[in-house]
Amino acid sequence: MIEFEGVGHRFGERVVLDGVDLRLTQHRVAFVGANGSGKSTLARMVNGLVVPETGRVLVDGVDPARHGPAVRRRVGFVFTDPDSQIVMPTAGEDVAFSLRRSDVPRRDRAARAARALAEFGLDGYAEHPAHQLSGGQKQLLALCAVLVGDPDVLVCDEPTTLLDLRNKRRFAERLTGLRQQVLMLTHDLDLLDDFDRVVVLDGGKVVADDEPGPAIAHYRDLCR
C-alpha cells in the first residue's frame, strides 16, 4: 500500500504539489494530468528520488525519505526514455546488471537474464547491442530489467509516450497480470480501461479520483 499524507512540494517559487492525500490500496492505479501537473514529481516521491517538502509518503509503512535505498529495492521504476535507463551495452548484460545486487550467484546471472528476456519476447537478443533494439523492444527490455529484480511495486512514468500504437498495446499487455502493484502515469487514456483506479491531477492537486470511466470523462472535460 502506498500513502500520501498532506504531500506538498515546490520547485523554487512554483508550487508543484499541493495537499495531496491518497491511500493507494488497489492493484492497478493510473495517474493522468496535463504536462506539468505534477505526476512525475509525485511518482518520484514513491522511491525517494524527490523528497516532499511537506507531508510524507509511506510505502508499506516505510518512508522513502528516510529509508531511500531500502524502498528503492522494493520499488521498480520505468522511465519514459528507455535510452537513458538501459545502462549496459547489451540486452543480456543490462538485465544481469539488475541481478548484481540480488542474491543470484554470479554464474547464474547470465542464464537467469536470458530466461527473463525470453519471457518478454526478447529471446535471442541477449548478445544484441541494447541501443540497436527498436523503441518498443527497448522499453520492454527496461521493464524486464526492472522486474527481474522482483520488486513489490512498479512505477511507470509515461512508459508508452515514445512508442507506436502496437508497441503501446504490447507494453500494456505486459503490465496486466503482474504480481506487483502498478502505478502508471500516462497520456494514453485507452490503455486505462482495466485499471482499478484513476487519479486526475491538475496544477498539483487531485481533482478527480475514481474508476476509469468517470475519471477519464472528468479529465476530458478539463482539457476542453
Binding site: 528516510r66 529509508h67 535505498p69 522511465f79 537513458s84 535507463q85 545502462v87 545486487r101 526492472v146
Partner: peptide
C-alpha cells in the same frame, strides 16, 4: 536521466542504509 535511472535501480546509494535495512 542516467543518474536517476541508476538511483532507481539501487546504485545511487552509498550503502547508506545498511544500518536501517534490517529494521525496515
Amino acid at each position: 536521466e542516467l543518474g536517476e535511472a541508476l538511483a532507481a535501480r539501487g546504485w545511487g546509494d552509498r550503502g547508506a542504509d545498511d544500518v536501517t535495512r534490517a529494521d525496515t
